[in-house]
Design a protein around this nucleic acid. Structure first.
Lengths: 219, 219
DNA sequence: ATTTATTTTTAGACTAATCTAAAATTATTT
DNA sequence: AAATAATTTTAGATTAGTCTAAAAATAAAT
């Protein structure tokens, strides 16, 4: 069994890993987990002893197959609980992250599978992030953001790349929730902000900072 | 905020407290939590510093009002999650305790109240234990057990006094689940075992050990 | 190719929770 | 009421996770 802390490190390393680069840096993990680099080094050694990560001093760290399986199952748990909190307990999408952060560590495959079934096998969490299936397969959205659309193009909101409360709150206030249809009416050259219509009517002005974090499916 | 460990001590003290005796002994807490008396003493000091328990050396320990509120809210949480696991995720009554033991420590009043609402404000958990309401009021069953019934008397199963997997499993195998109607057909003087009919037909033989742990409502 | 800056690791200390073994206190017996 | 038994507390060590400050290694800049 692994402690909550160990699981959080695995999750952080998983989140920071990308297919192209091979090692996650100590500093980036420290930043992600709001801790110090020296603490990270200590924990990495422990995870390395447990064969959950591959580690060479000064060369960064990456998950082993075993470590990745654990990380993905935690992500699966997290996202299923988020769906539960929003769909069944009527929480808003900006309220569920911290709770799911705790719930995700309750390790029971049986409970996870039953929860999945109870929720009718959701594919995405309330922020549009894909829920890994029980075999650990994750199907990511294609990475098209609102900022990639040209004038008069349309799309459907399918996710966000930034999960802060303030961003989610803002999106909700202008009806840019999952499933909303958005049409780009105009793009201001100067700052790349957009004026757009949401669901055919609501007119909004969206900064580049905001548009590049909104994942959409082109129509 | 209190750690999981602190919460478990508060819960144990609450469970071991009774209206008539005034202090819970160090040893009984150690027994309940499967730890050593010396560890208990250490933790009690800490809880005492936090004003969660009243403590005088060698004189046993009791909860303060503050400590009791916390203990009851954990019990409330535990029992609500048990209802969730049985009613919504189709777990059996003998499978839910350990999971609820983890879930109970996720402290969010909002989540607890939403869960309560989602479950339609259950009064009892799957073992018939009363769920404290949000103000901390607990309504216990009157303490009548199957062993108190006389020949030809009838009752409804409303709870258990023993929560072991093996006991719960056994009860289920003879249909003695919550709500079952039981009639005492005969009592064997020698060992105080009973033959009884469940729900009007199923004939079972129940040892005194088993009957005295089954809480019933007399009909 | 040195120097400078940045990143990472080590060394040593700290806190929370635990343990063993010994000492102190309370309870029980005779 | 003294002796024995049981319980409880202390003292000192241990483990997990963290931290600061200094040392070591790598990367960047002149």
């Amino acid at each position: 069994m692994n402690s909550f802390t160990e699981e959080n490190y695995l999750k952080a390393i998983f989140k920071l890993s990308s297919p192209d680069t091979d090692g996650v840096s100590t500093n980036s993990i420290a930043e992600e987990l709001q801790t110090k680099a020296s603490s990270v080094t200590d924990m990495i050694k422990k995870l390395s002893d447990k064969k959950l990560v591959k580690y060479k001093k000064y060369q960064g760290v990456s998950l082993t197959k075993k470590g990745k399986i654990i990380a993905i199952s935690i992500v699966r748990n997290h996202r299923l609980w988020e769906v539960f909190l929003v769909e069944k307990l009527n929480f808003k999408w900006d309220e569920v992250h911290d709770l799911a952060e705790d719930l995700e560590h309750i390790n029971s495959e049986k409970m996870t599978e039953r929860l999945d079934e109870f929720l009718e096998f959701p594919k995405y969490d309330p922020h549009g992030d894909p829920i890994p299936d029980k075999n650990g397969n994750v199907y990511n959205h294609k990475d098209v953001t609102l900022a990639d659309l040209k004038q008069n193009e349309k799309g459907i909101v399918v996710g966000v790349k930034e999960h802060s409360k303030s961003y989610l709150n803002y999106l909700e206030s202008i009806n840019l929730v999952l499933g909303a249809e958005i049409k780009v009416d105009d793009i201001i050259d100067f700052d790349r902000s957009m004026s757009a219509s949401v669901n055919g009517k609501k007119l909004v002005n969206v900064s580049h900072q905001a548009s590049k974090n909104l994942i959409i499916k082109k129509l």
